[in-house]
Amino acid sequence: MNIDSIKNGIVIDHIKAKKGMEIYRALKLDELDCSVALITNAKSKKMGRKDIIKIDKAIDVNLDILGFIDSNITINIVKEDNLTEKFHVELPEKIVNLVKCQNPRCITSIEKNLDQVFYLTDKENSVYRCKYCEMSMK
């Protein structure tokens, strides 16, 4: 299976297999007007199977979203057919309006126009807690 290489854009690599569509949706890639390739279950020496997303345009990707969904992801920036930058994403310190607090007793369950905010409180175990009720994300 061949997918054309990109001239200017981003390759999101080392996505855990089957997680690619979640990232595609979270980054709202369906709203772009450029070519986007989502490859699932690609063979990987390191991971066995992995997903890859290729975006044929230099866009600003929300790294917090990527780090939260899968902190093992690698980002490759391609400019004029050359790989100019390569880095890993990290767990973000704060995430906003990506997930809802599941605590039925939390104020976010009734107050209108309130951002859903979570803070990273335990990096080692990837624990996020709601800003308002401090319940950990399930």
Binding site: R105, C106, I107, E111
Partner: peptide, 10 residues
């Protein structure tokens, strides 16, 4: 005082 957690912070 409020039954919802986080209400005073809001």
């Amino acid at each position: 005082r409020h039954p919802k957690e986080g209400a005073p912070l809001v």
